[in-house]
Design a protein around this nucleic acid. Structure first.
Lengths: 222, 222, 222, 222
DNA sequence: GATGAATGAGCCTTCATTCAT
DNA sequence: AATGAATGAAGGCTCATTCAT
């Protein structure tokens, strides 16, 4: 509930915060950029990056084809921008939410809850992140996402903190462990998104992850 | 070592098993088909499905462009065939290997070991599975991966068996748990494959997975 | 020196002469029109007509893209206007300068000197004339360069005058001869303009032309 | 008459000479390439380079659009190839024809005759050379034609030879003189090509050039 | 069966021109 | 009058697929 409010607020600010002080025309420009980005997310989610025509995005956004190129260098740039800009929002949200936790175990739980809340609240975006950003060597090999590493390191840092707090096992390799965790939630989310019939809710998924991963990380005595 | 032998054998049989009884010309036909499939795996792994030209596959396979269409309906069909045929091999291998285990815990461990052995031994194939098939649910609308479900259900069955053997927690939802496990190993494998510098070995990865997931599934008292 | 002054005067008048009697706002309008024309000459000279974007001209002129269309019908119209208006200036200059000559031979020499002086003093304009207008007969199907014929006929008239003065050979075909002369000076000018390293001065070029063409036209006895 | 025969022979050899020893399929490949080049010359001559669509060339050549790209890198490459390949033929023809001359004066005359014969016999090609190759900064500035310099130097060499034979004036600057001559014949040719109504024949043009330029170069005493 | 030259539908991108402000 | 964001038609080029040899 609370998260919902935060998320709504965060969505609202996302479009405006950076430019709040600037004039109306600047705001309008940002609005159109956001409109295109939003349309692109929707269409990429539906058809996939390579099966999406720039004209599809334009139609969805309600602008002319050429207008896209006033805001983005090319089609690839749209996908990269989705990643960069949305990742900024997401990283910000995680940072804010994790501040409240008093130890690594709580942090892990908040992390999972925030993650599945995000997935639940913006499925198109989630799908683009889950599916489209994976598919092209452009984005996986050639293009190095500092922001993706930042994101992964949120998990890594929680693990390390948990180890120094003697809550998590000392023999874990955080490098591999963070991938295990990321992969686990990522795949569950993907299944939730792509699965035709919803076999489980994001809340159930979250609880399941906490059960398995949470327990898997703990010291034997706990 | 032992696994390697098994794997080598299995690779050899893969090309011939289905058609073993047929004549020489049929065998030659299979050889060319395999050559193309093998080339496709390599090129898809390098460049991704959409950035691979049919001509690239032809060149890699050492055949003419047109020849490909004597063995495959179209470019999509190559990807599907990779999946179908390799999945048959993989499913067969898992089945053989898992027979030896006496309980779910052992099965899980064998599953992980076999998985990372496969990844280690055929990286190109692994990459195609990891990256390129992610998008297939988009572009191959009609195509449903029964074999992928079979594969996933190997994990699901191990979980259920572990629950009935009272080794694994009773409150696990096998539907979600199998995704968690699949996602975890999948992501670790992806990182191992795509990461420029090898930060860990497949053996380390395997041990780490067993530590976290293995423990995460167990009953509290164990 | 003297010519320089004349040329400077002529440049100044070019912008105002036609509209000298009109009010200030009209003059301001002319100024902007000239600014655009001047910018267009510069950019056309640098990049060629087809490789020049209207936006390039606008930027060079320091006006908005749309402003150009307040002064010119379209991109073609800019090129035509350059030709028309600059040709008026040039024709006027030739007329003024040629008045002083007492015979065809002197006229020819003054013509050459004036020509190379113009080339020397406004290289951008020269380049547009040299290179870009070459193609105009293609793309401006309807447009006939009356002024170019006027210009050519200055040469033709000098030849005819020289023939009736018995200075030039009687067997010359003025129609062809004027093309020969125009082509000769045009090409020398082009080389001077486009050649990376200046291999000769316009003065040298002028003297060389007078030597060859001048002598070539003369009666045998002279 | 004689020239016509030579020219016809030379046209025939142009397509085959280089590949004469190779197999039929190579010859067929050359034929198609020539067909496209020939079509391009025709269409460029009619509409100009920038107003010609690749599809226009394809239609004229009777091939599909894509076929063009099997033989040429891109549209620019077609124009460059026209220049390069035709220039080879032309240079070869000049070399052959000029061998027969016994002094510079005769050489000059043969040069002019050959030139106007070429113009007369392949008007489309002449137009492309005259007009299209001039219009783009691509071809005039960025692209350096060694072959064009070779061509110009044929004239330059004749001038130098004439000077050492004491036939031509000693005070000529060959650098400028060759441009004067090239420009003169070039412009006459262009007028002959572009002029709607043929005001003169190429033979007349040739005679006129010999009269003016020929005489202009001679020593005073001759 | 094998070839690879040929095809042509399709799409990204550019840019001259318009028009609301 | 001036602006410049928006438009959308147009075209160069790619590449999966075909088919004559």
């Amino acid at each position: 509930m609370e998260i919902n409010l935060i998320f709504a607020y965060f969505q609202w600010t996302a479009h405006y915060s950076l430019k709040r002080v600037q004039g109306t025309e600047m705001r309008r420009k940002q609005e159109k950029r956001s409109k295109i980005l939003f349309a692109a997310i929707k269409v990429f989610a539906q058809k996939g990056f390579y099966n999406t025509k720039v004209a599809d995005i334009a139609r969805e956004a309600g602008v002319a084809d050429g207008t896209i190129y006033l805001y983005f260098k090319n089609k690839d740039d749209i996908l990269i921008s989705i990643f960069e800009e949305k990742m900024d929002e997401i990283l910000g949200l995680f940072k804010t939410r994790l501040k409240k936790a008093k130890n690594a175990r709580e942090k892990l739980e908040i992390f999972f809850k925030t993650y599945f809340r995000l997935i639940n609240d913006d499925q198109d975006l989630a799908e683009v992140f889950q599916v489209e950003l994976r598919q092209s060597s452009k984005f996986l090999k050639d293009y190095h996402h500092q922001k993706f590493f930042d994101y992964l390191n949120i998990i890594g840092d929680i693990i390390k903190q948990g180890q120094s707090e003697k809550i998590f096992r000392q023999d874990l390799n955080p490098l591999i462990a963070k991938r295990i965790i990321f992969g686990a939630i990522d795949e569950v989310a993907r299944q939730w998104i792509l699965g035709a019939e919803r076999e489980f809710s994001t809340d159930e998924a979250c609880r399941e992850v906490i059960k398995i991963i949470g327990k898997g990380l703990l010291q034997n005595r706990n």
